[in-house]
Simulated scan of single mutants.
Amino acid sequence: MTVPQIKGYCPGALRPMQSGDGIVVRIRPFNGRLRRAQADGIATLAAAHGNGMIDLSSRGNLQIRGVTEATYPALIEGLRRMGLLDPDEAIESRRNIIVTPFWQTGGETEALAPALTEAISAADAPAIPGKFGFAIDTGRQPVLQTASADIRLERDAGGGLILVADGSDKGKAVSIETIIDEAMALARWFMETRTDQNRMAALLRDGAALPADHFIPRQKQTHVPAPGYTPLGAMVGLAFGQLPVKTLASLAKQGGLRMTPWRMLLVESARELPGVDGIITDPNDPLLRVIACTGAPRCAQGQAKTRPLARTLALHLKDGAFLHVSGCAKGCAHPKPTHLTVTATPDGLNLIRDGRADDAPDRAGMTPEEIIKAL
């Protein structure tokens, strides 16, 4: 069996990653939002310096694919002029922040995102691991609890702000004035307490005890992300998080774009999206319940063309079931368990029920036709 190579870091713009279809350049939109001009500019740059395909990641970041060594400098200069780059690679690596897309103009969330960015960018900020991240989930109800994050800013049932370590069902009471400093203090606690753990939940699973002031019960998320209209604009889905440049440019004409970790975008103030190809607006579309990585040949470690397979399997998926199709055992697109996971190997497809891409398969070496029958 081929063992996938684990890079140990996520790509950035200043620290890109080589893949099967060229260099992958990841853009981390500041405060989880792109202005219309920025979104349109990214589409133009991706068309000129990449292969015309953009991915929306599970952390709400955009990845320009197919960049070459020759086109990379011009792409970076374009991103710099649009204000989409961090001052340096170290700050970029630390700035993993997911922001609820449902923030209101003038509200606390809008102020917290840049404040957290400033704190992470400070010279004395803790040197957290590259995949360690933050979630600003400070609406009335949590919506980001299924997204990958290690330190979470949430509200308790009474509306008070709490700071939560991922993996705990309780948080610490904080205020708008103290929450950023407390988040940095919790990050420092993680760095001082850990041994070889890179994620907060792993540290807590290994027995680390949080400070005694983490005792406020968390709310449980009931929000189910779906395409549709919201008071803030239109939520649209993207099959596998894939975004052709024409689709991004068309969406940019409709309004500013707020990122989500659900492979959806919130188009600000939009009430109609006429003629925008490449989006999902039907909340019952089965493609919304299918996750698939880039796969072969765009990923050098992919053992199969995952997305054509995922489109085929989606037609046979039972109501309510979620499917993850992974090109290798790394499971980059979805590291958590799923109802059904199909992992590509050199010897065929492995089917895993209620597990992750690297779990022991229920059945191994299957063909696509056998997978369809098993669904």
Rank of each mutant, 00 (worst) to 15 (best):
H339M: 08
F240H: 12
T193M: 04
C299K: 09
T338F: 04
G237K: 09
P286M: 09
A252Y: 06
A252I: 06
G320Y: 06
F240Y: 10
L257M: 10
C299P: 10
K330E: 14
L210D: 15
I279L: 10
A300S: 15
G320N: 13
R298N: 13
P335D: 13
L323Q: 00
A292Q: 14
R218K: 14
R289N: 12
Q221R: 08
Q301A: 12
C332P: 02
L251S: 14
A300H: 11
H223C: 07
Q301W: 01
H223R: 10
N198Q: 14
A304F: 10
T247F: 03
L265K: 03
A234L: 15
G228Q: 11
R194M: 07
G275M: 07
C328R: 01
C293H: 06
G327K: 05
K318E: 14
P335M: 04
P217W: 03
V236I: 09
M259E: 11
G275L: 06
K220S: 10
L248G: 13
V276F: 05
F240P: 00
R205I: 04
L317P: 15
D277V: 03
G320C: 10
L288D: 02
D196G: 08
A249L: 07
A239P: 15
M259W: 03
I216W: 03
P211W: 05
P261I: 00
P297W: 03
A321M: 13
T260A: 08
P335I: 02
K330F: 00
E272S: 14
P337A: 06
W262T: 00
L204R: 11
L287F: 02
L287V: 02
C332T: 01
L248F: 07
R263N: 09
K336E: 15
S250Y: 04
G327C: 07
T260D: 10
M264Y: 03
I279A: 11
C299S: 14
V276Y: 06
S250V: 03
L315C: 12
C328A: 06
P274G: 10
G237I: 02
R218W: 01
Q219Y: 02
T306D: 10
P283Q: 06
K330M: 07
R194W: 04
T195G: 09
A212M: 09
P274R: 09
P227F: 01
P211H: 08
G228R: 12
G327T: 01
V224K: 13
T306W: 00
A252M: 09
P308L: 07
H316I: 03
R307T: 04
V290M: 01
A208C: 14
C293R: 08
T281R: 12
H214D: 07
R311N: 13
R258A: 10
R194A: 11
D319L: 09
